Amino acid sequence: MNKDVPNNNNSNDEVDLIRLLDYFKGGIKSIFRKLWQLIEVFLKFIVLIKKNWLIVLGITAVGAIYGWYLDNFSTSENLTYEMIVRSNPISNIELYAFSSEVDNQKAINYKSEGIDMIKRLNVKTMSVTPLEREEDVINSYFDKIESAVMRNDMTDTLYYHSFEIDGHKGKMENTDYSLQAIKLKAPENTSPDFLQKELLNYLNNLPGVEAEVQNKLSILKTYEKVLKQNLDNIDSVMASRASLNKNSGLAGAEQLLVNTASRGNVEADLLKYSEALSKKLYGTQKKITEYESGISVVSNLRHVKEKGVMDNKFIRYAILAFGLSLLIILLIEFNKYLNKYQKA
Rank of each mutant, 00 (worst) to 15 (best):
L20Y: 12
R33W: 03
L57A: 14
I65V: 14
S87T: 10
S76H: 04
L20E: 13
N52Y: 13
E94Q: 02
K50E: 09
L35Q: 13
V56I: 14
I49H: 06
Y96M: 06
R19E: 15
A64C: 14
G58K: 04
K29R: 11
W36D: 15
R19N: 15
K51N: 11
D13K: 11
V47S: 11
D22W: 01
Q37S: 15
L17I: 10
E14W: 01
I90Y: 02
F24D: 11
I93S: 07
I59A: 01
I39D: 08
L48K: 07
S74Q: 05
S99K: 00
V56F: 10
N78C: 03
E82M: 08
S30N: 06
L35R: 10
F45H: 10
L48A: 14
G58H: 02
Y66V: 03
E14F: 06
S11H: 15
K29Q: 07
D71E: 13
P6S: 11
W68E: 11
L57H: 01
I49W: 08
S99G: 09
F73A: 13
Q37T: 15
K29N: 08
L21H: 05
N92S: 05
F73I: 10
G26E: 09
L54N: 05
L17D: 15
T75N: 06
S91C: 00
L35A: 13
V85R: 02
I28Y: 08
I28H: 04
K51F: 10
P6E: 09
E40D: 15
S100P: 00
N8A: 08
E40A: 15
Y66L: 06
V56C: 08
V85I: 12
V56K: 05
